Amino acid sequence: MSEAGASADEWAGRVPTMRDVAERADVGLKTVSRFVNGETNIGPQLAERIARAIDDLGYRRNLAAASIRPGQQSRVLGLIIGDLGNPFWSGMARAAEQVCAERRWLLLTASSEEDPDRFARLTDRLVEQRVDALMVVRPPGEELPALERAAGDVPVVAIDRPSEHAACNVYYDNAHGARAAVETLRTHGRVGYVGDTTGMWTMSERFRGYSEAVGVVDAEIVRHSAHTMEDARTAAAELLDAGVDALFTANNRASVGALLAFAAAGRRVPMIGFDEFEAAKLANPPVSVANAAPEVLGRAAAEAAFSLLDGAAPPDVLLEPDLVLRGSEAR
């Protein structure tokens, strides 16, 4: 049998090369090189064949193998966050970086922009770079093969959104925080909801907490469309027009969008947001929040990664958000 048709068992005992991938996919070596380097000007059928060959062979380009001897550590952790433009994620990354700095380790941080394909490319690339452990905020949707592959190579810590492939999950009790916030607001009457897609685990949990607090959900005053601050402003304005008596905003961007809607309408309703944000204390009145502190999340994730590298098996870390009442929850 030729290498191109060899079974996976026949590759046992040696590391597959890029040339092996080219032969298995029946494409040129340069085409495989362009594919693994992230070039996008490759036809979809060729790309699919190459990707399938990579999966079949278990090929992984190792960019640092020549510089790291067996048994050594690179003293580098990898971190993939959801969106570098979101202050929550940048705050979390900064805390993780501080833990690394205390140990004289390096942290490599990248943003998936909540895109599963980009997440997969980043995951593979960081493992290729020989990070000693990987911390990830997985994008919305189903579990990804790339994360399962990575977990077979390095210890993986899933942050904020648990994963069945992670050796340790570090996350907040989102449902509890949302439920406590909405129960506080229910004394005013109908509580509207503004959040992002429930395809995102955190949003699903926060909406679950909201639903448990209100009992019977009125779809007229629920919006899952707040992907951006402008989306949130539009959604909050719609709920003001619908006559809500109070508002729960399920992340920091939704909270800022709601403040913009209040300013445009010249009126406000009692509100509590989920996640702290810089402008919360500057609003009038200051915005109350269920605070899932990003610095606590980042530090706990990095410490879990180092525990795994030390040979321990740390349990999942479930953090409790603090309900910080500043006045916006009142009329």
Rank of each mutant, 00 (worst) to 15 (best):
C168L: 11
P87T: 08
N291R: 08
L29P: 06
A302K: 01
A25F: 03
L84D: 02
R130S: 12
V27D: 05
A64N: 07
E102L: 01
N41Q: 07
N169C: 10
L84Q: 10
V131W: 08
V136F: 11
L126D: 10
D9R: 15
Y171A: 13
P87H: 06
R104G: 05
T31E: 10
L185D: 05
I42H: 06
V137P: 09
T234N: 13
P140I: 06
V289N: 12
A22Q: 06
E295N: 09
D218E: 07
L259M: 04
C100T: 09
S328M: 13
I54Q: 01
S225F: 00
A263V: 00
R138I: 03
M1K: 15
I221T: 09
P286G: 08
G177S: 04
V214E: 04
A302D: 00
L325W: 07
Y59N: 02
R103G: 01
K30I: 05
L239F: 02
R19Q: 04
T187D: 11
I81A: 03
A283P: 11
A263D: 12
F277V: 10
R24Y: 10
Y171W: 13
A178I: 00
N174T: 00
E276V: 06
R267H: 09
T198C: 03
V36H: 04
G82V: 03
A242F: 10
R19G: 01
R186G: 00
L260V: 00
T202F: 01
D173F: 02
G13Y: 00
T202N: 08
M203N: 14
I50S: 06
T109R: 00
R125M: 07
D196H: 09
S204I: 01
V289T: 10
Q98C: 01
R299E: 15
V99P: 04
A246I: 09
L309Q: 15
V157M: 12
N169F: 07
A301R: 12
C168D: 15
V182S: 01
P70D: 11
G266V: 06
E23P: 00
K30T: 10
G5Q: 13
T197H: 05
I54S: 05
D132P: 14
G28A: 03
W89E: 06
A232G: 07
A53Q: 08
G298C: 09
S307K: 13
V214C: 05
N86L: 00
P87A: 04
G38T: 08
I80K: 14
V27C: 02
R125L: 12
D218N: 06
P314Q: 06
R104C: 02
A178H: 04
S255G: 10
G71W: 12
G58L: 13
G311Y: 03
A95H: 11
E148Q: 13
I42A: 08
R208K: 08
E113M: 03
R130G: 02
V182C: 01
G257Q: 11
G195Q: 04
G215T: 08
G141C: 13
A8Y: 06
T228P: 08
P139D: 09
S74T: 12
W89V: 00
A293K: 08
Q98T: 02
G311M: 09
A300L: 10
A51Q: 15
T202S: 14
A237K: 03
L84V: 11
A180E: 02
